[in-house]
Design a protein around this nucleic acid. Structure first.
Lengths: 188, 188
DNA sequence: ACCTTTGTTGAGCGATCATTCAACAAAGGT
DNA sequence: ACCTTTGTTGAATGATCGCTCAACAAAGGT
């Protein structure tokens, strides 16, 4: 999974997978049928082990709800080990490559993106319930905007944009989208 | 150029390039030295023929300044021919693939992204000058946010997100970032 | 007419790719 | 002990990759 995240599907050879998994080609093909099958499995694993976990930790289990939004974004570029290149997000990277892959990738990416967008939406609805967000806020629409910004940040992360610039972007763009006052505002 | 935009560097073979350019492998290598050299040339051509032109048309030559911002974003997904898959942006696609390419791509993408971000900034400063934007607006910061959103939209464009959803995203996110009132607001 | 220059051609090169398979090893049931 | 099952191994395969180069054609100067 880490190999695909770092190198993408096309740049990953079966030898890379052998070195990463410790399994020889025969075993890999016995278990997954093809390189594409292994990629599909890796994408599904990423969805439930990385994406879903991040959604749960930052968006579902935060109080107040809006608090986790910033850390959710920041976790994509701050948890990188010191000076190593950040591989970005397997979903974003695959969303770019998917149109060139036979039948694979598309479904997994669609599932992953919906996972994230739904996570945004759930969090926004919680914020409405607690009064941190105006009841008139279009949560569906805001979730879609957040997803777009999220993908854009991950493109810049992958490209190696300095962390300070990324931090500035999310620190200013998030309040602009979800509303200027992240804490305490009266409903009419 | 169009081939690289559609298929990316890794998925493009020299045979693809032969069919796309009409030049046989010998001539290609006589002119560009390698597949990487040709890619670098294509990226530079994209910057000045597509990116720079779009910046000029939508961001530099619009009156009032903020008017072109929406059409700049919309042009990435509305000018697609009917039902054909939109290849997205060569800059965005290459920003994802660049970490896996030897020495190429990185510089061209950096130049292209700066081209766009600077275009945003110039337009925002014009908007400040005409009074369409508050003089206190942090144009540098806003330009960076717009660049991030732009990349995110292009990821979704590439993946095949329906046009109506993309239109909703830019229609609501842009005013949220640059300020809720795109027209006429008094300076203190 | 001839030579030089400049560009084109496409078969062919070694390398690498994803994939297969006959041989082998380990484990479990009986 | 033996057989069956299950998984592992890694060399071999054909296809495709990026790339080269000797042969060829066109054009221009003289």
């Amino acid at each position: 999974m880490a190999v695909f995240r770092r190198k993408g599907f096309a740049h990953t050879s079966v030898q890379d997978l052998q070195e990463a998994t410790g399994l020889h080609p025969g075993s890999l093909y016995k278990a997954y049928g093809s390189k594409e099958g292994l990629f599909t499995a890796a994408l599904a694993a990423y969805n439930e082990q990385v994406a879903a976990r991040r959604v749960q930790f930052h968006l579902d289990e935060t109080d107040p709800p809006l608090r986790g939004l910033h850390t959710f974004f920041a976790s994509t570029f701050s948890d990188s080990d010191s000076e190593e290149a950040n591989p970005g997000c397997l979903l974003t990277n695959t969303a770019i490559e998917a149109p060139m892959l036979p039948g694979i990738g598309r479904d997994g990416v669609a599932a992953g993106l919906e996972l994230i967008e739904t996570g945004f939406r759930r969090m926004l609805e919680r914020a409405v319930a607690t009064g941190d967000l105006a009841p008139t806020a279009p949560t569906d629409q805001l979730a879609a905007e957040l997803l777009a910004l999220y993908q854009g940040v991950l493109v810049l992360v992958r490209f190696g944009t300095p962390t300070v610039k990324l931090a500035d972007i999310v620190a200013n763009a998030l309040p602009a989208i979800v509303g200027p006052t992240p804490r305490g505002q009266g409903a009419p």
